[in-house]
Every structure is written in C-alpha cells, then in structure tokens.
Write a protein that binds this DNA or RNA. Structure first.
Lengths: 359, 359
DNA sequence: AATGAAAATGTGACCGATCACAAATCACTG
DNA sequence: CAGTGATTTGTGATCGGTCACATTTTCATT
C-alpha cells in the first residue's frame, strides 16, 4: 500500500469537548452548562449535578479564548516585570527572585479562580515601554495588570491603564491616588531592624539607603531615624550613607564608614547587594562580622543564604504580595480609580551577621 | 448634581481597534488586512503599505483570543515547570533560576513572533499532573509545550502530548523517540571540567554524581570517566560518590572523600548545591580551597557568585535552550513524532575554586 | 486581441464561549 | 384555580479574527 511520498500534513489536534458537547450529554441547553461553569445561583441542584457529571465524564474545560470572545472577561492577569532586573544579558542570571516568587504567588491565586498569569518583560529605560504595554492590553485584554518595581513607580504606565480602564495593582509602591497598592511596611521593618540592633546594645548604627526614586527607600530611612530618635541614640549625619542599591555604592558607603574616626558597630543596608558589599569591605578592613560589626540587609534574595556569614535580613513577602494583587484584581471589589493601600507583614530573619555590640 | 448613591458600574474598557476598523481606514477588505498581518506574500506592495499605515495610525494589534478562535493556532507556548523547584513553600525562594531564565529566553523568542509564553507550575509528585496538563491544553490549546526538568523525564506527559497532537520540546533530556529534545552536551562538559583539572596536574579527581533518574547525571559521569581513562589517570571506585543533587548528599559524599586514606585533590560535583556542600565540609576539615582542593560544579545558579571562594562551574545555557525550544515550536519545521535532538554549547566559567594540584 | 493561468482581492461562514432576551416553569396569593 | 411575579431554562446574536472559496485583476502567451 502506498500513501504517497509526501509527508502527511501534521495530523490534526485532538478535539476538545465544547460546551455544546456537554449540553448534549447532559440533555440541557448550552446556556445551562455555561451557568454551571460560572456558578450561577439559578440552576436547580438536580440539573447542576447532571451537568457536572457530563463535564467530568468528558473532561471538559472551558476554552479561555472563547470565553474572552463571548464575554467581557479574559481570565488573564498580566504581570509587568523589568527585563533588566531579570537577567542582565543573554543567560546570565542575576539571581533575582521576583519572577519566580511572583509566578508562584500570583499563579496559585490565578489557578484557583480559573485565571492565567502572563508575564511581560519590559525595559524601564525603553521609551517604548508604554507602547509595549498598550500592545499587550490590546492583544490580551487582561482583566488586571500587576506592576512590579521599578514599573510600579512609573506613573505613565499607570495613567495608560487608567485611560484604558484596566484595573491594576502596584507592588512595592503607591501614589495614593489610583490602583491597588500592595506594600510592605518598610518603615516598620526598618524600625524593627534598628530596634534589634539597639537591643543588642549597639548605639553607633549606620544606614545605607537606596535610590531615592523608590518610595521604599525613603520609608526605610525614616524607620531607621524614628527608631534611633526614640531610643535617643546619637545620630551622626555621616552614618547615613547614600546608596543606589548597587554593589559598588554599598562598597563605597562601607569604605567611608570604616575609614571614619568614629566607626559604627552596626550597619543596616537597604538591600542585599549593598549588604554583600559591606561584608566584602569588612573582610578587607579586617573587621570581623558579627564580632566587631553587625549587618542587617533588606530583601533577602536567595543568594543571601550563601553569604559568609549568612545575612540577617528583612524579607519582602513578594509571593504574598503577588498573591494578594492577583486576588484583588480577580475579585474586583476595589474601585481602582480611588487608590487603595494594602500593607502586608514583613518577615525578620535573624541569621549570623548580628551579635551584641563589641566591648 | 446627584448621580445617585450607587457606585457606577466600572466604566467600560477602552475599545481596541479591530481588523475591520483598519480595513475601513485603508479602504480594503478585512481579509487583506489579515494578509498583511500574517505576511502573506500575495499582497501588492502599494496596498501593503497603505494597510500598514492604517495599522500604525490606529495602533492596531490583533487580538490573540480572536486569532485562536478563527484559526487553528493560538499563538501560545506553554512552559511546564516544577512547582517544588521554584519555591519550597510560601514565599521561600530557593534561588532557582530556571523560571527567570526560561522566561527571558523563551519570551524574547515568542515576542519576536507575536507569541506569548505561559507558565504552568506542576507538581512532579502529584499524580494529577497529567490531568492538570490536559486541562491546560484544553483551555489554552497552545501551539507548543516546553517541558523542563524534572517533567522532561516524565514520559506520561509526553505521551499525553503526542496523543493530543500538540508539539512539544524537552529541555535537558531526551528519549530519542519523540519531541524536540534540547540538550547540553553534558558528557563533553564533564570531560572539559575533568580535563581542566588534569591540565592543572591533578590526578586524584573525585566525582559526585546526581540522581540516576536524570539522563544528565549519567552523561556527566560518563564524561568524567572518559576523560580520566583517556589521560590514564588512576580511577578509584570510591572516588565516584553517589549523590542526589541535595546539599545533604553532597556533604555526605565530601565527608567520605575527606575521610579516605587516599584523599582526592579535586572534586567535580554534579550540581551547585552539592558543590556548596563540598566547600562547607572542606572548611570543616580544614582543607583550603583551592590550595589543597579544587572544586568544579555544574549548573552555575545565581547563588554561586556568592560562595567563598566563587565556584568554577559549567553553566547550563538555560535561556538559550528555552529560546531554541520556543523557536522550534513556533517554526514547526521539525516533525515531533520522530524525535529530534539539538545540542547547545555549554559554558565553562573559571572562578576561584580551581588551582594547580598541591605539592 | 483573445486566451488562460496565476496573482491579488473580496465575501460570507465559522470557531466556542457569553450576553440579552424570550419562554417555560414554579410558588404563592386572593 | 386563575393571576402574578420570581425563578429556571432555552434561543439566537455576537465577539474578532481566520478559513474556504468566489471574484476580479494582472500578465504572459498564443
């Protein structure tokens, strides 16, 4: 038998059952099936059971594209992440855990509600960021958008979303005017960190801040100042070192602090990268951690576990924030045009860079 | 003026232009617009330009759901990742960089072709994994599926995909019978690592292998053996230590090796986690790295940069693999029923855990 | 100039859900 | 037990693309 030398066109995909298949099996109209799927209250229990049985029997799962076409929901949540933050260039990971934690938290919540989470990597610097977002909105018509740092600080994107009428959530920032703003209590976190050091009898506590374009940076600095003031600990202006979240800025700050005549016995760094730099410089200056110097960092990215010694850190609850963001966008209980703030608890993880003040 | 106490129903979403809007502006039929979008060759340049102008003017982007409905493509690629690998529980990142590297590599390729990459986190252990995949197929009807470890070793999932007629790619594994199998040349990589140590005059080189359920594990072991045999280096059976990719197994293996009467001067660990364990144990045994002991690891996950000293490692080109997987699934040039293997180059990154053999 | 095939363009049906609305059923009242 | 309104079920249009096919235009060839 000859079928011809031509390769067969790829055999067609297995046909999934449609809502009408289910309707036929259950002996009801397609609309009734739709009602069961969407948990409409006005279906008699007996019928509902019969429909559900047909659904289970056929392994029916509604087609998300068709749902989008017919209705006004897409069952999609779009998460905007920063491309640069994810990887600095082809395949060289920076160990950023935003993406996987977002994925985990956001997806769990989406899955529970029949939604899907879709990521879009956008360059902050790219002036076409707005166009990229507009394209994604037009193509996907997501029911909600999650902005992560640094995009959560970009009001242009927020304005675009407001104009488009797409609900959105910011993570780690807030303009108090629109969107659902999911925050960690950075001020309280910094206060906690500072208090921890004060309790260990430290008095000379320095603080390396992050880029001032981030709300979190200023909140953290404020928390540090508050705790110091409350404890009547001496505040010296050169113990407040400016940083920009980079290793280099952390190293510079540490060098300045260590070269000072009145050297601090503890340093709080506004992120892990700068804390690593502090450890690095301490080693260079022959300063032993935590005996001569205590260090606390913010963020608690995965690499932290491998620092020597492992860093005591404030952990940002990224997964929980993403989960909450997805949850609120799906529920649609919050009027996005008014701006709501939701604060989630942070975690304080004591590892091995903190100890009692020397001497 | 009173608008009533009732909150306004959320104002409707901004309407995106449709293909017919573009057609009206360009003065052509909707089908011609479709042809331009899909780069059909049979459109006269003049018309094409006119249509393109209308598209640009309106900022038209085709709706992905409608494309799926009308045609037989969905413009979606589904990536299946392991849930456990991503995070071990709520919010505690393990520093796995599969997800972000996959996202980066896969998404760049998808974006270029008007596709979207969607992730699904599936529990390997969960017996409902198949059902979850079937549901995702039915709901999304992706044009292709990418399986990452450990799912790439799961033939049940592959069988399901074959039965469903959905093209798929495996990353880091191959059964040589179906799917597009994207591999790193693990054997050559292990050979390279071993050769590097041999070139440094090491002779007593130990190898800690990974779980034998992974193809990569056996390939790596084989590469080590080949290199050793070729160099006529002595092979001692207790220098081949079994591991399972966990820190604990690495620590056990290292302890055994260090306690041996004939202690090796170099160790190759099949992944970073076990290499960390080796460094940890070396410290405990008072063995200095790289002076007394050289260590090479596989994978080069982000945390590696923070080990002390930074690990010399073989890097898995995850982003490039994901990119290639997406590219092949989009192109549909490969007959998935026959099984193709694509090997991508690895990178060997020399850091500070490798040095000349002692004495 | 006539012819016919190939290239370019247009027309209307269709995918699989939801929506708006119509019809049937039910429950309660007088 | 008819009459009313609320609940339950059904019908057909619709979303925005692509597909199959019909039609028109182009152009080489006779």
């Amino acid at each position: 038998m000859v079928w011809g030398g031509e390769k067969l066109a790829s055999e067609s995909r297995a046909k999934s059952p449609t809502i009408r298949d289910v309707a036929a099996v259950a002996g009801v109209s397609h609309q009734t099936v739709s009602r069961v799927i969407n948990k409409s209250p006005n279906v008699k229990p007996a019928l509902r059971a019969k429909v559900q049985a047909a659904i289970d029997q056929l392994g029916y799962v509604p087609n998300i594209a068709a749902r989008r076409m017919g209705g006004n929901r897409s069952y999609l949540i779009l998460a905007i992440n920063d491309r640069a933050r994810t990887l600095d260039n082809w395949g060289v990971g920076r160990g950023n855990d935003w993406v996987d934690q977002m994925l985990f938290g956001g997806m769990m919540e989406c899955e529970k509600n029949g939604f899907r989470l879709i990521f879009d990597l956008v360059d902050t610097e790219n002036p076409a960021a707005g166009k990229q977002l507009a394209g994604a909105l037009s193509s996907l018509r997501p029911d909600g958008v999650i902005l992560t740092p640094p995009h959560s600080e970009n009001q242009d994107l927020a304005d675009l979303l407001v104009a488009n009428g797409t609900p959105f959530a910011r993570i780690g920032s807030s303009n108090k005017k629109d969107g659902i703003n999911i925050l960690m209590d950075d001020m309280a976190a910094a206060q906690t960190a500072t208090q921890c050091l004060l309790d260990l009898k430290h008095r000379k506590i320095a603080f390396i801040s992050g880029s001032s374009d981030y709300l979190a940076s200023t909140s953290r600095l404020e928390g540090y100042r508050n705790a110091m003031a409350k404890a009547r600990a001496p505040i010296q202006s050169d113990w407040e070192q400016p940083g920009d979240f980079s290793f280099e800025s952390g190293a510079r700050a540490a060098e300045t602090l260590f070269s000072s005549s009145d050297r601090p016995t503890a340093i709080i760094a506004s992120n892990d990268e700068m804390a690593f730099a502090v450890l690095h410089q301490a080693d260079k200056f022959g300063i032993s951690v935590p005996d001569d110097l205590s260090v606390i960092s913010f963020d608690d990215t995965p690499g932290v576990r491998f620092s020597v010694p492992p860093l005591t850190a404030i952990r940002q609850p990224i997964a929980a924030m993403a989960r909450r963001a997805a949850s609120e966008l799906i529920d649609q209980k919050i009027d996005v045009n008014e701006g709501a703030e939701i604060t989630l608890p942070f975690e304080f993880i004591i590892r091995r860079t903190t100890g009692p003040a020397p001497e």
